[in-house]
């Protein structure tokens, strides 16, 4: 018994260990996995996050002028699979763990981003403008490419330009035989 009495006495001397929350601040580390947010400048709507999400909390709707990504907080199990597998790093988990809400606002607990498409500079079809960071990474070894121009092209026009550049062709309308290597 003496062993535990020692512990008791020490704990009494230490004073209360109660966390004052919610009447005061609480311990909350930065690395905590909280609400998921999407960076609309980086999301390319590839659907990898939907593929790896176990809880089915992510939905991506494509239409002709853009795509909408919705993450339902009430389904999200905070496993960070979407963050891990997102190829562009668009999804991050914030440290916002304040999740309690009333039933009336249940369906408003979402993270939604609308990503609008812009006409392709080459052919005019609506296209997802590539994130600048991604283009800079892709064309890192090619100083002659203007990232600002390339990112506004649709994949087909980009392939054309790549082919033209790679094989020193004269016109973008030239046969697209070099597509595979582009």
């Amino acid at each position: 018994m003496a062993g535990f009495l020692k512990v008791l006495l020490r704990n009494v001397l230490q004073g209360p260990s109660t966390d004052p929350y919610p009447l005061g601040p609480t311990f909350s580390p930065d690395s905590i996995r909280g609400k998921v947010v999407v960076d609309p400048t980086m999301c390319i709507g590839c659907g990898m996050c939907v593929h790896v999400c176990t809880a089915g909390a992510i939905n991506i709707q494509h239409n002709e002028n853009g795509h909408v990504i919705t993450i339902y907080r009430n389904s999200c199990c905070l496993c960070a699979n979407c963050h891990l597998y997102c190829p562009t790093g668009a999804i991050t988990l914030t440290d916002d763990w304040h999740s309690a809400h009333e039933q009336a606002v249940k369906y408003q607990q979402i993270e939604q981003q609308h990503i609008d498409y812009e006409p392709c500079l080459g052919c005019g079809t609506p296209v997802r403008v590539m994130p600048l960071a991604l283009v800079s990474k892709l064309y890192a070894g090619k100083p002659d490419v203007d990232p600002e121009h390339v990112r506004h092209l649709c994949p087909r026009c980009r392939q054309m330009e790549d082919a033209v550049r790679t094989y020193n062709l004269q016109h973008p309308e030239a046969p697209a035989s070099g597509n595979d290597e582009a």
Binding site: S31, I32, R33, C77, L78, C79, A80, L93
Partner: peptide, 12 residues
Amino acid sequence: KETVYGNRMNIA
């Protein structure tokens, strides 16, 4: 666990 992995139970 919370500081290193971000969750108290399912540390992923």
